Computed example of a mutant assay.
Amino acid sequence: MTTDCTTSVLRDLLRVYDHRFLALERSQRDRLVEGTRRAIGEEGLSEAVRAGLPAAYRLRAFCIQHGLREELERLIGDEAAGSPAGAVVVGGRVYAMYPYLRGVSRQDVDITAEIGVEHRADAVAWQGQGEVRVRGAARLERVETHRTAVDLVLRERESKAEHRVAAETGEDGFTAVADMTAAGPGRWDLFVAATALGITREARFGTVRGPALKDEPLRRALGDGLTATVYFTKGGHLAVHVRPAPAPPPLRTKIIRRLAR
């Protein structure tokens, strides 16, 4: 069996080790674990197969191979409850912490490639002559730290031109102010980048929102013949559309409108 085929089979087997596994009768769990152990083999996962599986599946395989039934059920239970293990950063890599899993290799708990950004948009408003003030929160997933640097990144959808704004951070989150007069025309998608302990991750911003944030478009004339609109895309992401202001109607049209009142 090829590596890709083996990886695919193990993915399918290990995928069911979630809340569904915990709901099975004890005898059903025993049969499933025994069948999975045979598929894994006495030697465990090969390096190639291990590299093709996410950390959650690698850890399940480790527990099953070594007969760690209680640890397996605790691992699954914590994830099902929305309480995954915390993580530490060592040498530029991120490792999940499972104190109850003795003997697990660093490779199996390496989640560097899986770490993302937890983020929330709390407020968006215009200020001054053409500045967008954004308030929210952003941090690396699972990594506990008291210091996280946050940048608000504006990226033009077509040209990929980029403007990066360093945010002010505090206990309640971050505040960033972006000057849209400097950005220029285009559709500017907003991203948030969080950096802690040498690790930086970036994500589109706006899908997770605080309860006070409204989704109505916010328009502002920028001067120099430009107008800008802050809005949420169909996918729920925050963006700013900067474009030429509409031309004023001809004098004849103005007169007709006034007479029609």
Rank of each mutant, 00 (worst) to 15 (best):
H146T: 14
D179W: 06
Q28V: 12
V177S: 05
R157C: 09
R69C: 03
T112A: 10
D108E: 10
K160G: 10
S27G: 04
G173E: 00
A182Y: 14
I115H: 02
D215T: 15
L251S: 11
V132G: 05
K234L: 14
V242K: 08
S159M: 03
D12Q: 14
G41D: 04
V49E: 00
A247D: 13
A138R: 05
A125Q: 14
T145R: 11
T36A: 03
P211N: 05
G225C: 03
P54Y: 03
P99C: 06
L238G: 01
E156Q: 11
L24K: 07
E171K: 10
V134K: 04
T148Y: 06
P249L: 14
R133Q: 13
T3C: 03
A48S: 09
P246N: 07
Y95I: 09
A260H: 03
A81N: 05
E202A: 08
V33W: 02
Q127K: 15
G236P: 10
L24E: 07
P54Q: 05
W126N: 01
L226N: 11
P84R: 11
A196G: 12
R69Q: 05
I111G: 01
E168V: 10
E42K: 15
V150D: 00
D12E: 14
A137F: 15
T181A: 13
G77S: 12
V16T: 06
R219N: 12
L140S: 08
V134H: 03
T3S: 05
S83M: 13
L14M: 00
V132Q: 07
H237P: 11
V134N: 02
R135Q: 14
L24G: 02
K160H: 14
D30A: 15
D122A: 10
V124N: 08
L22A: 03
D30T: 13
E202L: 13
E42H: 13
R142C: 10
V94I: 14
Q65I: 03
Y17V: 00
T112Q: 08
G35A: 09
T195C: 09
G136Q: 03
D224N: 14
V124Y: 08
I199R: 10
E162W: 09
G173P: 01
R74F: 07
E73H: 02
P246W: 09
C63M: 08
L14C: 00
A221C: 11
K160Q: 15
A247Y: 11
P54R: 02
G41V: 04
D122Q: 08
G173C: 01
G206C: 06
L251G: 08
G116W: 10
V134M: 09
D189V: 13
R243N: 03
A48G: 02
K254E: 03
T7F: 00
L238D: 02
R58A: 02
R209Q: 03
W188F: 09
L140W: 04
R69I: 12
M97A: 12
A228Y: 11
L13N: 01
M1Y: 01
G173I: 01
V165P: 00
R29C: 10
L197T: 11
T145E: 12
G41F: 00
L140A: 06
R155D: 08
R142L: 14
Q65H: 07
D179Q: 07
D215Q: 15
D215H: 10
F21L: 06
V104N: 01
A212R: 08
T229C: 12
D110V: 04
A87V: 09
